[in-house]
Design a protein around this nucleic acid. Structure first.
Lengths: 170, 170
DNA sequence: GTACTTGAGTTCGATCATCAGACCAAACGG
DNA sequence: CCGTTTGGTCTGATGATCGAACTCAAGTAC
């Protein structure tokens, strides 16, 4: 790993995590994977990220075992079990951002499918369990601002849908 | 905020979070604050970070309301409520790193003081609650590697102690 | 089959961030 | 009052990220 991206001199699991997901854009790429985005061009359209950086990040995520690349020509990227295990951390960071920057009016809401709404701690208000991402549905919340983006991927993501399921054709 | 550190074109609370804690070193600085480190020179000794970057990061964290700077001459840095609210996210990221890079032999263990050990989900195994950081004690775990660092701050942090309480004089 | 379009990158020069180390001033200890 | 520690700032070199241009293979229209 090149200079400026590791924390070799730290005996700390947080440092180990940040060496993988601490680089610019990486967590937003993984967020898109959770939300159902699977293709290079969709990520690029949704993130306004340089292709070179997106390519580097995806290669690193595949090499580190968080994503798989499937299909020879135009590949799809899927989360592995290691990648899926990041969900609690990603959700916690998102909730912290909601409370700080949009208190009382979340930008996105998550529901335990067929049960209840997810609280700040990631647990379903109805059953009290912490569902895995595959059992969650995402919907726009009262704090969502549709005027920020209007690319097709952003529009598709506004429709309520289950996590980890691919977006409808555009 | 300068180019390369923000995500203006994302209507997403995760992006808002990452604009503050997503820069290199920032989460490790906050980790040290949770562990009881309060002074500039202690952070610098413990993190092997350039003074210029540490200075920039501390200024940003104070400006964003995650830390307070108290004392005119040689200031101490303390977590604010907003900073303390990051604990669940920081803990979740740490646990993900433990499971990936040191499964079965955590580098650090956390205990709900007077109650039980903390699980991967941040809840006490005995009482089932999710304690706030002030009610937690940290101890080295079986996966700790004391050979990586021997600066005085690292040595002091090896002693079991409560979070948020200052380190003993060195 | 051939032209055209799209998807998935790679390459490039310019700009920005980070690095280690030198320097500096205020606070503290005696 | 003088030397040391603390908490920085400044500087040149290096690495990361940027937008834009380019490549090349896969799919699509005809």
């Amino acid at each position: 790993m090149p200079l400026g991206t590791d924390y070799v001199r730290q005996d700390c699991s947080l440092a180990r995590s940040l060496e993988i997901v601490g680089e610019r854009w990486t967590l937003l790429i993984l967020r898109d994977c959770f939300f159902g985005v699977r293709r290079f061009s969709d990520m690029q359209a949704h993130l306004d990220i340089s292709k070179a950086v997106l390519s580097t990040r995806l290669d690193a995520l595949v090499a580190d075992g968080l994503l798989t690349r499937s299909g020879a020509g135009h590949p799809e990227y899927h989360l592995t079990d290691d990648g899926l295990a990041l969900w609690p951390a990603l959700y916690a960071l998102t909730q912290w951002g909601e409370q700080r920057t949009s208190p009382g009016a979340p930008r996105r809401l998550f529901f335990h499918v067929g049960c209840g709404q997810l609280g700040t701690d990631g647990r379903c208000a109805t059953c009290g369990n912490a569902p895995t991402p595959g059992d969650l549905e995402i919907r726009p919340g009262p704090g969502a601002d549709f005027s920020v983006r209007d690319d097709p991927v952003s529009v598709a993501l506004r429709e309520p849908h289950r996590l980890l399921t691919p977006l409808p054709e555009r």
